[in-house]
């Protein structure tokens, strides 16, 4: 379970304080899959970073009794001069798992072929996305944080992602943030809309979508 209790996050800007998240609370139980909709700049990525432990909230608490992944984003967060394989080795070392066991999976899933041993800076954005996804699936977590990922790949790749996440890891939790409701519907069972720093919960994708659309018109 992750309990997010009344968190506030603001950033200092040239023209004063910008409150991105204003007293947000929600919880996610094991196996639950939640989607957070919000337009660009609504604070989705900030929320994901707080959940991933990269940043701390100004106030409020985030309690977690399950392991939470790093935020999986399609752009990756790779060092360009390292190869895909170097990045796999690095991740395995950091999380203390055997590299040897993970190589076949990453080779198969990322479909990078011999490019796995080439520097990441030579990859296309689709290739980076596949590598990023493969790496986060190589480490087992109770909850996966996904930030707009999977929008990079093609339909077949998205199917593979769905299989890895929803079928093979059916018992895990997912927190997916996106501005694309379609993708969210196929992954999640609880929906939130993040608007002006506040979070509104919907049990039904259609209701969330209508609310989100209305917010876009304003």
């Amino acid at each position: 379970m992750i309990v997010v209790d009344n968190i506030v996050k603001s950033y200092r800007t040239g023209s004063g304080k910008n409150i991105v998240l204003d007293r947000i609370s929600f919880r996610i139980t094991k196996g639950e899959k939640i989607g957070i909709l919000g337009r660009n700049g609504a604070g989705k990525s900030t929320l994901i970073r707080l959940l991933g432990g990269i940043e701390r909230p100004d106030s409020g608490r985030i309690e977690q009794t399950m392991s939470v992944s790093w935020p999986l984003a399609s752009t990756g967060g790779f060092q360009g001069s390292l190869t895909g394989m170097d990045n796999l080795r690095f991740i395995c070392r950091v999380y203390g798992v055997s590299i040897k066991d993970k190589v076949p999976f990453v080779e198969e899933f990322s479909e990078l072929g011999r490019y796995l041993n080439e520097p990441v800076k030579t990859y296309s954005s689709g290739m980076k996305g596949r590598l990023a996804f493969a790496l986060s699936m190589a480490i087992e977590f109770d909850c996966y944080l996904i930030d707009e990922a999977m929008s990079a790949g093609d339909a077949r790749f998205r199917d593979k992602c769905r299989y890895e996440l929803l079928v093979k890891r059916n018992d895990r939790s997912i927190i997916l943030v996106s501005h694309d409701p379609k993708q969210m519907r196929s992954f999640c069972d609880t929906f939130y809309v993040l608007l002006q720093g506040h979070l509104t919960r919907f049990d039904d994708a259609e209701a969330a979508y209508v609310f989100y659309q209305a917010s876009l018109q304003n």
């Binding site: 991933g52 432990g53 990269i54 939470v68 790093w70 935020p71 990756g76 967060g77 790779f78 060092q79 690095f90 991740i91 950091v94 999380y95």
Partner: peptide, 10 residues
């Protein structure tokens, strides 16, 4: 090293 700070242990 910005990219590695994505991992909470680092």
């Amino acid at each position: 090293n910005n990219a590695v700070l994505y991992h909470r242990n680092i």
